[in-house]
């Protein structure tokens, strides 16, 4: 930054990179790059939404049953928290544009706080599912099974096979003939309910369909990837906070705040679709 560029205006903004004509051009280029990145994010999550759509279309009973394990009040609370964080982020961009240094820091801190609350609530939800063995694939061993859910969840491959072997005889009288269940059908040890076990305060009603673990696989991949994005956003906001503490942002240079804001709003946008699709299944 200290070396002046040749033929460059003496009063050029210190954050103007030498390969750009003006702050406006630099801003536009950055914004275009950011949008292209957001497009890749949309496509990334698009693949997961596709998996969701195909599985839900083919096996609606799994979704209708398994979503009852999710706490839609906690999910709704998290939705509200993310919306608040989106507002504070949009306010932060505004403050940066107007050079309101103090409020900029306050808004960024508020956004960060909301992100912490979101992940905290998410953690409570994950812990509940972990405790009750409501996990993906062969880790799906709901409470009330012969294997303690905590063991099955943290187990290595060898333990999984023994868990499956131990559970399979108990389910020996499968309703489908073995030929019909296909080559993988024998692992259908994942049915809760025959112990009459209740799953916390909001246990699902009705008999469990087969392969409920598919829902939890989709649930954990989608919310997990989203959670990782929230985490990445938090790191970016901390970076913004450090830079805004140094007073780097103002009416001429607010691009980083704006671009992190775009990313943050996209993360919010994805949750806006995840929430009804996972929690609010009727």
């Amino acid at each position: 930054m200290s070396t002046p560029h040749e033929g460059r205006d003496e009063h050029a903004h210190p954050h103007l990179q030498h390969h750009f004509e003006s702050m406006a051009q630099q801003y536009d280029s950055g914004k275009f790059g950011m949008w292209l990145f957001l497009v890749t994010e949309v496509l990334l999550f698009g693949g997961l939404f596709c998996a969701y759509a195909v599985y839900r279309a083919n096996h609606p009973e799994i979704f209708a049953y398994a979503h009852q394990f999710l706490d839609k009040t906690l999910g709704g609370l998290n939705t509200l928290v993310l919306i608040v964080s989106s507002l504070t982020m949009a306010m932060a961009v505004r403050c940066a544009q107007l050079g309101q240094q103090r409020r900029l820091k306050q808004m960024l801190a508020a956004t960060l706080l909301c992100a912490c609350i979101f992940l905290g609530v998410k953690g409570v939800e994950y812990e509940h599912k972990w405790k009750h063995g409501l996990l993906w694939g062969t880790h799906y061993v709901p409470q009330g099974e012969t294997v303690a859910p905590a063991d099955a969840a943290g187990a290595a491959t060898t333990a999984e096979t023994t868990a499956a072997a131990a559970a399979a005889p108990a389910d020996g009288g499968t309703t489908l003939p073995h030929a019909a269940t296909g080559p993988q059908g024998l692992a259908d040890h994942s049915q809760p309910g025959h112990g009459g076990a209740s799953h916390g305060g909001h246990g699902p009603a009705g008999p469990a369909p087969r392969n409920v673990h598919l829902f939890f696989g989709i649930y954990f991949v989608m919310t997990g990837l989203h959670g990782i994005h929230v985490l990445a956003g938090m790191i970016a906001i901390v970076w913004l906070l450090r830079r805004s503490a140094a007073g780097e942002f103002g009416p001429e240079y607010f691009a980083p705040v704006d671009f992190v804001g775009l990313y943050w709003h996209l993360v919010d946008l994805i949750w806006i679709f995840l929430f009804p699709l996972l929690y609010l299944i009727h």
Binding site: Y55, N58, H59, E61, I62, G137, T138, T161, A164, T175, L176, A180, T181, G182, Q184, G185, L186, A187, D188, S190, P209, R210, N211, H213, L214, G217
Partner: peptide, 16 residues
């Protein structure tokens, strides 16, 4: 298109 071939209440995806 594959709906007719689906085994009721069975879904692929189990590792074992």
């Amino acid at each position: 298109q594959y709906q007719a071939d689906l085994i009721p209440d069975f879904a692929p995806g189990i590792v074992q």
